[in-house]
Design a protein around this nucleic acid. Structure first.
Lengths: 170, 170
DNA sequence: GTCTATAGTCCGATAGAC
DNA sequence: GTCTATCGGACTATAGAC
């Protein structure tokens, strides 16, 4: 993160990162398949929290509400590291190739959420559609949270975005 | 396409493509910013058709129904080249880096659709949410269309997916 | 059209942990 | 004695600079 802040993402080579960490380039690629991946470590914690939230939602909750429960549970993860989340977001905003990876990760999360819904007995295509809808809600809420100067509660933003979505598709 | 079928996407270098086309590598990069981009030319036609469909939808149509009108209009584009669409899909399925680009293109389309909705007077975040929902519907319908042996009418699949979405978010 | 930087891979070697 | 982590360096292809 320090290197990226100093020289930008493009301006930092894998060799630079490895050197700063006291390793060689070769070893970097043992830990990260990609240069991009280095900005996405820790993602699994977030994903795990979401999935747990989906599975733990009340049995009678609708598919979309179960997804919402998962997102709500995960909000805590971000709120613990707001400044790091902000810096990361700034890097993503400036680099299309990082945005591509971000979307791929979100698509992966959507797939996992859909699988969790199926465990709850939801069938396709409902599971996939509900999962995608959740990603959309997350995107809107998260964007507001990072944009807004001293953002409101992320969980409130999530609830608001969900309500908007329901009204749009009504 | 021939080269990709013979040697696969990874197994084909940009130099190979350029040579087959009677050009140099340098010239390839004048036309395509990326090796990946070569599989996404012609996309603009599709995007233009969608946008036109959104803008031409009845003034009283809901945001989501306007998006549906755009997708419906675009279905014709695919149905004209079903086998090419199938081959392309097979390449995408086998290469994660192409899937990333595909998602980026879809995200771009979503942004354009949202802009078209705003021209229709729809405000954010409704416009963005409706546009994203449309992408989700498109994904589900398109997947069924290419998977299903002798697929049904793509437009019917689109209508079905839209109905599913509405019921999921109800 | 040439020239160069960088991502990413492959091979083999080495050293420490248990 | 095997298993795992690191290293060094050579090599290819993409991509961009000039």
């Amino acid at each position: 993160m320090k290197l990226f802040e100093e020289r930008g993402y493009e301006g930092t080579t894998v060799a630079d990162i490895a050197e700063r960490a006291g390793l060689t380039k070769r070893t970097f690629f043992r830990y990260f398949t990609d240069k991009r991946e280095v900005l996405f470590s820790g993602t699994e914690i977030f994903e795990g929290t979401v999935i747990k939230g989906v599975l733990d939602a009340p049995a009678k909750a609708s598919p979309l509400d179960a997804v919402a429960a998962g997102l709500d549970a995960s909000a805590v993860v971000f709120e613990q590291i707001p400044d790091r989340a902000g810096k990361r977001q700034a890097l993503l905003d400036a680099n299309p190739e990082l945005q591509e990876r971000e979307r791929a990760k979100l698509a992966g999360l959507s797939g996992s959420v859909a699988a969790a819904l199926r465990e709850r007995g939801v069938t396709e295509p409902a599971a996939g559609l509900a999962a995608d809808a959740g990603m959309s809600v997350l995107r809107v809420a998260f964007e507001r949270w990072t944009t807004d100067p001293h953002g409101q509660d992320l969980r409130k933003l999530l609830r608001d975005a969900l309500a908007e979505l329901k009204s749009v598709t009504a």
